[in-house]
Amino acid sequence: MPATICVETLRKKLKKFEIDLDEDIVAITTDGASVMVKTGSLVPAFQQLCYAHGLQLGILDVLYKKNESIRQEPIDDDILDNSEAESNDNDGRPNIS
């Protein structure tokens, strides 16, 4: 729904409890969706965006969105050969030190 309709609906619901949005409400908490940010700008109350929602969105971006710009470089076979040789003693047993 548009922000203006959201404010109208909020006013109607609060009026059922004899609460005035302009006089009785000093702050509101909303998520960061653009319609809710606009709703907060249309009412005189202080608006606090929900930090938990912002954190959740950031975590979901990191965990679930593919990043096509990350590219895995091929492993150099010479590096593997040298590290394996350094990890073994002269008799071919692994070096556990």
Rank of each mutant, 00 (worst) to 15 (best):
R93Q: 15
D61N: 14
K65T: 15
L21W: 00
T9M: 13
Q56G: 15
K38G: 04
Q56N: 09
L10Q: 06
G40H: 03
I5L: 12
N90D: 12
K65Q: 15
K15A: 14
R71D: 09
S41G: 11
I96L: 11
T39H: 05
T4C: 03
L63R: 15
P74N: 06
E23D: 01
E84D: 15
K65N: 14
E68K: 12
M36S: 02
V26M: 11
E18G: 10
D78Q: 06
T9F: 09
V43C: 05
G40E: 01
E8V: 11
K66Q: 13
G58A: 08
D89R: 12
S97P: 03
I28Q: 08
D89H: 07
V7R: 01
E8F: 07
G92H: 03
D91I: 01
I96C: 05
N67R: 12
D78G: 09
Q47C: 05
Q47R: 05
A27R: 01
G58T: 11
A85Y: 03
P94N: 13
I5H: 08
S34Q: 14
S41E: 13
G32A: 09
H53Y: 10
N67W: 11
I59R: 08
Q72V: 07
V7F: 04
S34V: 11
T30M: 06
K65V: 13
D24E: 00
K13W: 13
K65M: 15
E73M: 05
T9C: 15
L21P: 08
M36Y: 05
N67L: 15
L63N: 12
D61M: 15
R11G: 06
C50P: 02
I28N: 02
K15M: 10
D24S: 03
K13C: 15
R71E: 12
D89I: 00
K16Y: 00
D77M: 14
G58F: 15
P2Y: 10
N95F: 04
P44Q: 10
L57W: 02
R71Q: 13
A33R: 04
A33I: 01
Y51F: 12
K16T: 08
P44T: 00
D91H: 06
D20S: 07
